[in-house]
Every structure is written in structure tokens, then in C-alpha cells.
Design a binder for these strands. Structure first.
Length: 182
DNA sequence: CGTGTTTGACCAGCGC
DNA sequence: GCGCTGGTCAAACACG
């Protein structure tokens, strides 16, 4: 089951980062550059996508080179042209290399939808945290280009402690909160 | 019986 | 206005 490995450090974590997932990525990348567009050639790992809207649809997830995580903390288009602003929470996307779509991050999720995505032969799955009062959502999508890569997009922050103490994925979330200013 | 998944329908935003 | 697409709902279903 724990067959997935997060891509941020291919070299150091070969197979078992179940027990020690440090994420250098967030700390090193984010403070200097909040913006994706890293131009290395291949650091492969864990890239952050700005999942949200603004992504030019041409390279939203197809042509983007592999790189960088980036917590995209952008309030997604919240000012629509309509009177009421639609409050959208920032989203955080990252990629993991996995054979399975479901990455157990310690929280309990309930699937509430699945949609076929354009330019992607794999469907996107929508999950919601089942904890009462916590309406964190996540989307899981597999890249059509590289089927070994799963893009997980989190929206919102958990208002409760992690429910399972599986890995310390919790660290990841904590880091996200720290660097995103929440 | 409680919990989670599946899946078609529905709705809203956006571009043309 | 219309069609496309993404996101959500909810009833039916499956499973332990």
C-alpha cells in the first residue's frame, strides 16, 4: 500500500519515506520563490502547481516541466464580475509519484465526485474531509502524460488534528500553513 | 447499520 | 444565447 513516493527528493528517499518525510522543498523553494517557474532542467520533484485558474490552459499540466513545488497561495479569482465575490480558498497542489491515486495522508476523506478532464484521459476525483466542520477538499488527478504521477490539490486547511498518525505527512501540511501564512 | 463509493444530473462560469 | 467545462449534489449501491 504505501507504495507511493513523494517526488521531492528522488535521491534521498528511495523507497521508504513512510517514516521520515522531510520536505526540503517547501522550505527551500518557497521562501525565495513563491512562484513556480523554476527553470532548472530537471530537479524532478514535487512540483507545485498553481492549480488554480490562472494557469494558461495550454500548459496547465501537460507541458509544464517538472519541478518545484509551490504552494500556490492565491485566492483564486474571487472577484468575479458578479456582485458577490465568490470566496475561494487558496489551493496547494503537489505531485507525487504513485501507483495508486489515493494517498493516505492521515485524514479521512469522502469521495463526492469524479469527472473526466479535458486533455486528460484519467478522471479527476473530488474528495472532502469527513471531519465535522472541516470542509477541506482535495482533488486527485493523474497526469495523462505521465501516468505515474498523481497531482493532488488541497483546498483549505484542516481545522482539526490529523486523525491517523501515519507518516508525518502532517508536517507537510504544517509547513504549508506556515509558508502560506495561515 | 454506519460509512464510503459510484454515477448521472444539475449548476455556474467562461469563451465564442 | 449557446455550448463546453469544472465542480457539486444526492440517490442508489457496496461493504465491513
Amino acid at each position: 500500500m504505501e507504495n507511493y513516493q513523494i517526488l521531492f527528493h528522488p535521491s534521498s528517499s528511495s523507497s521508504s519515506l513512510s517514516s521520515s518525510t522531510q520536505l526540503p522543498l517547501l522550505s527551500s523553494n518557497m521562501q525565495n520563490s513563491n512562484v513556480l517557474t523554476n527553470t532548472n532542467g530537471n530537479s524532478n520533484g514535487f512540483w507545485g502547481l498553481k492549480t488554480d485558474v490562472d494557469v494558461p490552459k495550454s500548459d496547465a499540466n501537460n507541458t509544464a516541466p517538472h519541478e518545484t513545488f509551490v504552494g500556490s497561495q492565491d485566492e483564486v479569482k474571487q472577484e468575479k464580475k458578479k456582485g458577490e465575490k465568490k470566496v475561494r480558498r487558496p489551493r496547494y497542489a503537489f505531485q507525487t509519484r504513485s501507483h495508486v491515486d489515493i494517498l493516505d495522508d492521515g485524514y479521512r476523506w469522502r469521495k463526492y465526485g469524479q469527472k473526466a478532464v479535458k486533455n486528460n484521459k484519467h478522471p479527476r476525483s473530488y474528495y472532502r474531509c469527513t471531519h465535522q466542520g472541516c470542509n477541506v477538499k482535495k482533488q486527485v488527478q493523474r497526469l495523462s502524460k505521465d501516468e505515474g504521477i498523481v497531482v493532488t490539490t488541497y483546498e483549505g486547511m484542516h481545522t482539526h488534528p490529523i486523525e491517523k498518525s501515519t507518516d508525518n505527512f502532517e508536517h507537510i501540511l504544517n509547513q504549508m500553513q506556515i509558508y502560506s501564512g495561515f
